[in-house]
């Protein structure tokens, strides 16, 4: 199934060619979880602070559906 992935605020560095906020289309097997998607992208799970799927927070064990829009963020917590 096809997924639309966006990475933000420094997570770009883990995916060759990725740019801040630009969508990346990926093909993954049905039934894949958020955590498995993160692993398959080569991003350390510890660096992913929050995951939004179609604009809603999703847990790492959430199962993704075809066409889902997945956004990955590190903790942007400095002030």
């Amino acid at each position: 199934m096809r997924l639309e992935v966006r990475v933000f605020s420094g997570l770009e560095k883990y995916i060759p060619g990725a740019r801040f906020g630009r969508s990346i289309e990926v093909e993954r097997p049905e039934g894949i979880t958020v955590a498995e998607l993160v692993d398959s992208l080569g991003i350390p799970r510890s660096q992913v602070f929050t995951v939004l799927v179609n604009g809603r927070h999703a847990a790492m064990d959430a199962v993704l559906q075809p066409g889902d829009r997945v956004s990955l963020f590190p903790p942007v917590g400095g002030g």
């Binding site: 933000f8 605020s9 420094g10 801040f20 963020f73 590190p74 903790p75 942007v76 917590g77 400095g78 002030g79």
Partner: peptide, 10 residues
């Protein structure tokens, strides 16, 4: 809410 890190902010 505001937050910053390296070259990024939200």
């Amino acid at each position: 809410y505001g937050g910053v890190l390296a070259f990024a902010g939200q």
